[in-house]
Design a protein around this nucleic acid. Structure first.
Lengths: 324, 324
DNA sequence: GGTTGCTGTGAAACGCGTTCCATACTTTAT
DNA sequence: ATAAAGTATGGAACGCGTTTCACAGCAACC
């Protein structure tokens, strides 16, 4: 495999000139430029990007940490980040953390190692101070609220989403409202739970521990929630569920248990996933793909302008269907 | 940021010795090793992996090409590849091609450029000969049948999947069976269509162009199919649908149109996605995550043993629910 | 005692493109 | 005509870890 030295020799110019041609530097005479291009053609030259990366000290690769890819929220997010990366000529390195802080820190090291130029956090288990510490190694954008004050955030307003959900249910006359979330230790989980309990308090509604479910991610989990609710003597009349999948499982199992939706139990989901559509599920639509694109664009800005863009909050939308 | 030269100076050894410590080479005396480790600690040393990559001529990065991430088939596949990569200490670079051959070739160049050690094709629009040509640049594993004879394949037996579906429907007495697939030009699409028409022929069933739909990916697409079927004077009594999402949309819209499932229209999907469960959809389960893991493992084998592992075919399973 | 074979260590070259600096030739401006 | 500014090109250093080769020290072997 040829390198610039060979090209230079063949084109009878210096390696510097070859490099200039490679980088479209203006100060190269037409004839030399052509000679170089011809030599590259002849020798079937391909630049070794590792050498370029080493030289330049950057890689044009953006890392992405998500707990799992195989979850509609994150696959949508990655889709968006992927688009943003493509638009700004980055490549995207995806890492699954399984919510394991060790895995996350390991990946953060790639920033130190200069193997990635920047990092996008889909969802993280790391605490604010730890993130602040780690963010010194490079540019980081987070897609969820986190304790960190240094990291730029691109997020949906979870508080507003929960508010939409609760107010919608309240307007339908519900007073016994329960909550079901995913990972309670993640940024999303924390925000949602906090917003929810604050709202209940504000509206004078009761928070009951047995109407609160956490660690629910899948359809099966949703079924389990429905089964649990079916067994309660005083059951909630409405559930705010952090994921359409879980909500779908809940509705399905509720039907099996003879609980009428929405008459006896109203259900509102999150994300407006395809499944929400076929299940006629009222849901809070989050612009996840757009969030990914925005995050990539923000990171690009940090990397090129070397400034920290302000946090961005994307707006949510309530989509009313038959489940409330 | 420190480098091995500084470490060497501080530990009063040569750079070679530092490198040996870094790579756990046995021929380093205990005291020197400790001195080096101490110096690393003191200077907060992190190796520059770009330099390592340049030196070694490899990157421990595996590239993955998928048309889109935001599709359950591919997000599952990526999940599996991600797991396999983690297990074998690779990192995973994901690229969305949108079924654009240009994008694909562009990404293939990364093999040439030595930016990735190997490549996994989720689904490709490139023809067999082109793939054979491109595969000379490095190790490639494909997750779908392709015209290429050089590329190692890890795939599900689409022929067998279609057979399961058709035989199941036949056993239920169906004689008017239609087919609905995604991208007809992709490996999956080609295999499925071919297998399907061959089976119809073998069983003496009729192929009708108006019972065949292609380019259907989403729930909305499925609804459109149902609407189309509803308008036919002679409609199929059963549909084999290449994706659970599309099948779900089909069922949903069929219900709206007053077509009874499964009595008037049986529907069988593919993948056993969560949505299949809540829609009570009979489906052909494909071990997609496992396929991703297997593909990563196969690539690892190629990269380390420098041999081409034989193609692997994973088995499918028919999951019967209420839609047939 | 001389050979063979490890163990341990370092100098120097290598992989390869980029970039700083010096130099020289043209233009343009005054 | 002369200084100033721009154009064009090359040499050498740089980024940084790995690897080859040479060599010294030391133990085992015949």
């Amino acid at each position: 495999m040829s390198n610039i030295t060979e090209i230079a020799r063949r084109a009878r110019v210096s390696r510097t000139t070859v490099s200039r041609v490679l980088n479209n530097h203006p100060y190269v005479k037409q004839d030399k430029r052509e000679a170089v291009l011809k030599a590259m053609q002849d020798l079937n030259y391909v630049p070794n990007l590792n050498a370029v990366n080493l030289s330049r000290g950057k890689t044009n690769v953006i890392g992405v940490i998500v707990p799992t890819i195989n979850h509609p929220f994150f696959s949508n997010l990655i889709e968006g980040i992927g688009r943003g990366c493509y638009k700004h000529h980055y490549r995207m390195l995806v890492h699954q953390s399984n919510y394991d802080p060790g895995h996350e820190i390991e990946f953060f090291n790639m920033l130190k190692y200069k193997l990635i130029d920047g990092l996008i956090l889909g969802s993280s288990m790391l605490s604010g101070p730890v993130l602040d510490e780690l963010s010194h190694y490079g540019s980081v954008v987070s897609c969820e609220a986190s304790g960190s004050r240094l990291i730029t955030k691109v997020l949906v307003n979870h508080e507003s989403g929960i508010r939409m959900a609760v107010e919608h249910l309240r307007s339908k006359g519900h007073r016994r409202i329960g909550l079901c979330i995913g990972n309670p230790a993640s940024g999303i989980g924390i925000s949602r739970k906090k917003a929810f309990s604050a709202l209940l308090e504000a509206y004078g509604l009761e928070w009951r521990d047995d109407w609160y479910y956490e660690g629910k991610y899948s359809i099966e989990d949703g079924s389990a929630v429905a089964a649990s609710i079916a067994g309660q003597s005083l059951a909630p009349s409405a559930m705010v569920v952090g994921s359409d999948y879980v909500a779908a499982g809940l509705i399905k199992e509720a039907a099996r248990q003879g609980i009428k939706v929405p008459e006896e139990l109203a259900v509102i989901g999150f994300d407006n996933q395809p499944i929400a559509q076929v299940m006629d599920l009222t849901t809070i639509q989050q612009p996840i793909v757009q969030m990914g694109e925005t995050a990539a664009a923000a990171l690009h800005l940090m990397l090129t302008e070397a400034e920290r863009p302000s946090d961005q909050t994307l707006e949510l939308e309530l989509i009313v269907r038959q489940s409330t």
